[in-house]
């Protein structure tokens, strides 16, 4: 059974926005879409390590602020002509709180 950690209230993240969670193995970007879904991805574009948390969120996608690579938030796959993938981690909302799977930290260590 997974163990979820509460990282903060949903309203701390703007709709179509993101916030960063610091971990011992780098930052994770936690996104909130217009529909209040949340997604957690590595906060580094595979192209030039752009901070994805600062990108523009549209639908369930984000555009990297450095060179406009577009990633699907669900799978982490780059869209269109670009090739690459960002690691994704389980995230969900329960009673207005954003939860991340504690396992993800361990997976990040292993990676």
């Amino acid at each position: 059974m997974s163990d979820w950690i509460d990282i903060g209230p949903l309203e701390a993240i703007a709709p179509r926005g993101a916030r960063v969670v610091k971990t011992a193995f780098g930052c994770v970007a936690v996104f909130r879409t217009a529909k209040d879904e949340v997604y957690a991805l590595d906060n580094a574009c595979p192209h030039k390590q752009g901070p994805l948390a600062e990108g523009i969120v549209h639908g369930a996608k984000v555009t990297c602020p450095l060179h406009n690579w577009v990633f699907d938030l669900e799978t982490g796959h780059a869209q269109g002509a670009d090739e690459g993938q960002v690691a994704t981690y389980p995230a969900r909302v329960e009673e207005g709180r954003v939860l991340l799977d504690v396992e993800f930290l361990n997976n990040r260590t292993a990676a």
């Binding site: 950690i5 903060g8 916030r19 960063v20 969670v21 971990t23 011992a24 936690v30 260590t109």
Partner: peptide, 11 residues
Amino acid sequence: APIANLVQEAA
């Protein structure tokens, strides 16, 4: 600021 800092917990 980061919404959360999990560096401590990981340690």
